[in-house]
Amino acid sequence: MKPAAFDYLRAATTSEALEALAQQGGDARVLAGGQSLMAMLNMRLAKPKLLVDIMRIKELRRIERQKDAVVIGASVRQAELLAWPALAEALPLVALALPWVGHMQTRSRGTVCGSLAHADPSAEMPLTLVALGGEVLLRSAKRRRRVAAKDFFAGMMLTARADDELIEGISLPIARDGRFAFREVARRHGDFAIVACAAMKTSSGVRLAVGGVADVPTARDWPRLDGTALDDALNAFAYELGARDDVHATARYRRDLVRMIGRDLIGEVLQ
């Protein structure tokens, strides 16, 4: 169980990394924290010709508080964001969800943006990005663009990132007197979610985002609902997510969790 051979490039600047991606495109992979990619390399599921290590690029290692948003650079590790003093106040949902990402030993190395690039629909960071309506900052040698969360995730492990693009960072809107709730059910502590739910109060009502069920994390906005109307809305949402069976859970169990946890969380944020 050893990786296939690849070249290794340790980029010192963003432009070096972008240059390499421009030249090798789909044959290159960006190596950040490596907590997902390295396992795939070891199993030889992934066999890139070139790894571009971006972790020594200083300009990508930043957590920047702007007026309405926080920008998190590509080489910011999950543990670093978790330790950011303003996290609970500026990004309360992230503060709730981030401790659920893997284990302490993987958060210390894994990056926030790497988790998004991997686009596992059960992962917490993609769910959080979608729930908050954040943006992904993409950059190639030729151009920069911002992609909204809902447009970024294209399917299981697929994103809108082009082969020559690097995720420079993400932008998450700063919470304004919002109320947030997060809950996750997994087989064991630290496992990928069977169902993860994030809820937040919005100006018009409430938003519920669900990970682990559909191929991409999915958010739904409702006006203030309660009683049977809420039950019906959650039931319809649960079915629309297209849950499936696997060795760890059944589709029905996933729908149950969406209905039950969804209701609890909405109750919490609308309280």
């Binding site: 039931n235 319809a236 079915y239 629309e240 297209g242 589709a251 029905r252």
Partner: peptide
């Protein structure tokens, strides 16, 4: 299980 809403998506039957 609660049934899907009328006219909505139906769940594909699966077995273990």
């Amino acid at each position: 299980e609660p049934p899907p809403p009328a006219g909505g998506v139906t769940a594909a039957p699966m077995r273990e």
